[in-house]
Simulated assay, not measured.
Amino acid sequence: MNKKQHSKNTTEPENPEWTALEVNSAMRLTELPNSLQKKLRGQRGPQKAPRKLQTAIRFDADIVEAFKAQGPGWQTRMNDALREWLKQQA
C-alpha cells in the first residue's frame, strides 16, 4: 500500500479529523490569555535564579573540535574544564 492510499483510507486514532461543529467552536490561539499562549508556544518564563551568563568568546578551532568530538555536552565539559583550572589557580 503506498502513502497516498494509506493517508486516504485511514484516520489517526490520536488525531481524528475535525467535525464542522469542532471547527466552528475552536478558539484561536490569540484569544487565549498571554500566559497560556506562551506555554502553548513552548516559551520559557524567566529563570527564578539565573545561573548562567551568556557571553561571546572565541576559542581556537582545535580546542572546540576536541570538545565536540567527545559528543553532546561539550559546552558543559568545557565549563567544567575552566572551573577545574580556576581551582588549581587558587
Results as ranks from 00 to 15, higher is better:
Trp74Cys: 00
Leu86Gly: 05
Glu84Pro: 00
Leu86Lys: 04
Arg44Leu: 07
Gln47Ser: 05
Ser25Met: 12
Lys38Arg: 15
Glu31Arg: 07
Arg44Lys: 10
Gly42Ala: 15
Ile63Met: 03
Lys52His: 12
Leu21Lys: 12
Ala69Ser: 06
Arg51Tyr: 02
Val64Met: 03
Lys48Thr: 07
Thr55Asp: 14
Ala26Met: 01
Ser25Thr: 09
Leu40Gln: 04
Pro72Thr: 07
Phe67Glu: 02
Ala20Thr: 12
Ala56Glu: 14
Trp18Glu: 05
Ala69Phe: 01
Arg83Leu: 07
Gly73Gln: 00
Gln5Lys: 09
Lys87Thr: 05
Phe59Leu: 05
Ala69Trp: 00
Pro13Gln: 14
Met78Leu: 02
Thr11Ala: 12
Lys3Phe: 09
Lys68Asn: 00
Lys4Ser: 14
Ser25Ile: 02
Lys3Arg: 15
Leu82Arg: 02
Thr11Cys: 10
Gln89Pro: 02
Gly71Thr: 02
Pro50His: 02
Ala81Ile: 03
Leu86Ile: 08
Leu40Trp: 04
Leu86Asn: 07
Leu32Tyr: 09
His6Leu: 14
Ser35Phe: 07
Leu32Arg: 03
Gln43Ala: 10
Thr76Ser: 09
Lys48Gly: 06
Leu21Pro: 01
Thr19Ala: 00
Met78Tyr: 00
Leu21Arg: 13
Thr76Asn: 08
Lys38Leu: 14
Asp62Met: 10
Asn24Cys: 10
Ala81Val: 08
Asn2Thr: 09
Gln43Phe: 15
Lys8Ala: 05
Pro33Thr: 04
Ala69Lys: 09
Asn9Arg: 11
Leu36Glu: 11
Pro33Ser: 11
Met27Phe: 12
Leu21Gln: 14
Trp18Asn: 03
Leu21Cys: 08
Asn34Tyr: 04
Gln47Trp: 00
